[in-house]
Computed example of a mutant assay.
Amino acid sequence: MRRDLQIKTSDGTAKAALFHPGGAAATGNALRGVILYMDAMGPRASLSGMAQRLADSGYVVLLPDLFYRFGAYGPFTGASFGDDAARAQILTMLRETSQEMTRQDTAAFLDVFDAESVTGPVGVVGYCMGGARALTAAAAYADRIGAAASFHGGNLAGEAPDSPYLLADRIKGRVYIGVAEVDNSFPPEQSARLAEALRRGGVDHIIENYVGMAHGMAGRCPTTPSTTRPAPSGTGSGC
């Protein structure tokens, strides 16, 4: 069950969609919350489908628009990178939506779960740009976030001063990193740097390499690593 929201933040109002479980998944144990951090294409049908699948497993899932500061845009798909104007708009919004902005926004996102009477630790998951946001959130709100996952996240251990690996020692929850083998935004040296930071920080973590997969794999690959499937030619629906 989906409900559209307007979330007040320190910088304005973010659109978001909230997905509740239905049927048997809505009964029994206390509900847990998950924030799904979008990729650079923004909220769209494929991400809503991912959110609904999580909700059908018994979670309350929040899918916020991280680019809300720019007003109306899109809709975009993986194919939008082939259009010069769309690509320029996407990259501008990506560059100008900092980790710090999303970190601050996450406080308001967590308040949504309080209003929905969602109890216990919250999970965060992100795709592409959202992967870094998930790790940053897990560090910034370590007492609230019990698990974080990144799928083909870019620049998780880069040279920028806000790179998530620098915050690894603040993370208390469990961490999963799904890495596309063919991904210039997260090369092997960054993977090694992140692994070392998580190990030194005492973080319970897994970094899993999806052999033969390219950035954007999450929209097309199976849910377990594969050594037989070829790398997708495009960015996929989960980029």
Rank of each mutant, 00 (worst) to 15 (best):
A168W: 01
C128W: 02
A137T: 13
R170D: 08
I145K: 12
A132R: 12
G158Y: 06
A140L: 07
D169V: 01
D169S: 14
A134E: 07
Y165T: 02
A139E: 08
V118F: 08
I171C: 01
A108Y: 03
T136A: 12
A107L: 07
A148W: 03
Y165Q: 08
T119S: 15
Y141Q: 06
S163E: 10
M129P: 12
R133S: 13
P121I: 00
G153A: 08
S150Q: 06
L166N: 04
A108V: 03
L135A: 12
R133E: 04
G123A: 15
T119F: 09
A168C: 04
R174Q: 13
G153I: 04
N155T: 03
N155H: 08
E116Y: 11
C128E: 02
K172V: 06
A142Y: 06
A107G: 15
E159K: 10
I145H: 14
A140H: 13
V118I: 14
D169T: 07
P164I: 00
S163P: 10
P161I: 01
R174W: 00
R133G: 00
G153W: 00
N155Y: 11
V112P: 00
F113E: 02
E116C: 14
I171A: 00
V124L: 02
A139F: 10
L167Q: 13
T119I: 04
A140C: 11
K172C: 02
A157R: 04
R174C: 03
R133A: 10
A157V: 04
R144M: 08
T119Y: 09
G173Q: 05
M129V: 15
S163G: 11
F113M: 00
H152W: 03
P121R: 14
A138S: 15
A157I: 06
G173E: 03
G173H: 07
P121N: 11
R144K: 15
G123I: 02
N155K: 04
G173W: 09
K172D: 06
A139G: 14
G146W: 01
G153N: 10
G123Y: 13
L156H: 08
R144W: 11
D111C: 11
A137K: 11
L135P: 08
R144Y: 13
V124C: 06
F113L: 01
G120W: 07
